[in-house]
Design a protein around this nucleic acid. Structure first.
Lengths: 144, 144
DNA sequence: CTGCTTGCAAAGGCTTTGCAGAACA
DNA sequence: TGTTCTGCAAAGCCTTTGCAAGCAG
């Protein structure tokens, strides 16, 4: 439990643990960004992360947020979600799951527990592997 | 899926027909962009469309390509594919299908004939419908 | 020490917009 | 003739980068 959260967040030690596991050098900024990000499963833009961390009384620069989230995504702590052409979202939930996107409101929900059957896929090019699957279900009040 | 969607290499009359069906006012530029786009099922960026059309001896401006592709996507002639944070791709194949993206090479392939079972999904918010489902399978020479 | 990391500001790159002129009905 | 569309250039916006100063080990 950390200063941002009531029930879900990782505390500093858990984050340092996580960094150790993913081989990420801990810095003040990275720990603060991670604390903010892992308060709960959520989808945040770089801007929201910047605002959120800095409103917590710390200072992190925009460049560092971008660098750090790029690093986290690279190492596998978070997942980039490309849903909206306007900006990238970072997903603090890195378990296998899918997304429902409400195009009217911009809300993004996780869908847990639905596993895709990829055996029906055609053969992949030789020497390649599936590194990720993204399923995005767009919903709206409008009919399709 | 409609009668147009699996019919590629459209001639001028077919395109005018298509425009009539989707209620799009035909202009020289729009017809030329459509002719280029619907030569075959393909995924093109705005830049590629601009280059392709203009190399065909016509002239279309960048702004018009963006306006026109926005219009086509809105009307349902083409689908926007958000795969790469760098740019938007427009997909001339508007039948139900999915995508395999080679992250090493940037190549994008269609997967036809694999239908997702959406009955396992949780209930959607009241009054909403699924308007679109995007499944993107990222492949690479690297292991996941 | 020695190499990463940070942060500011500037640059980059895709996309949108303002507005005058052209095309269309 | 009124409306819509086009095209140029400029502006916008998210993201990346260059580089000097500051940390981590």
């Amino acid at each position: 439990m950390n200063k941002y959260s009531d029930d879900y967040g990782l505390d500093r030690d858990q984050i340092l643990d996580l960094f150790g596991h993913y081989q990420i050098t801990p810095t003040r900024q990275r720990v603060e960004i991670a604390e903010y990000m892992f308060r709960r499963p959520q989808h945040l833009s770089a801007e929201k992360i910047l605002d959120g961390v800095n409103q917590g009384g710390h200072h992190v620069s925009r460049a560092t947020v971008y660098n750090t989230m790029g690093l986290f995504a690279n190492k596998g702590l978070v997942r980039e979600v490309l849903i909206d052409r306007e900006r990238v979202f970072y997903d603090s939930n890195n378990s296998a799951h899918h997304h429902i996107y409400n195009v009217d409101s911009g809300e993004l929900y996780d869908v847990e527990g639905v596993v895709l059957d990829t055996t029906a896929l055609p053969n992949l090019p030789a020497g390649t592997n599936i590194v990720d699957t993204d399923l995005i279900i767009r919903i709206s009040k409008q009919k399709a």
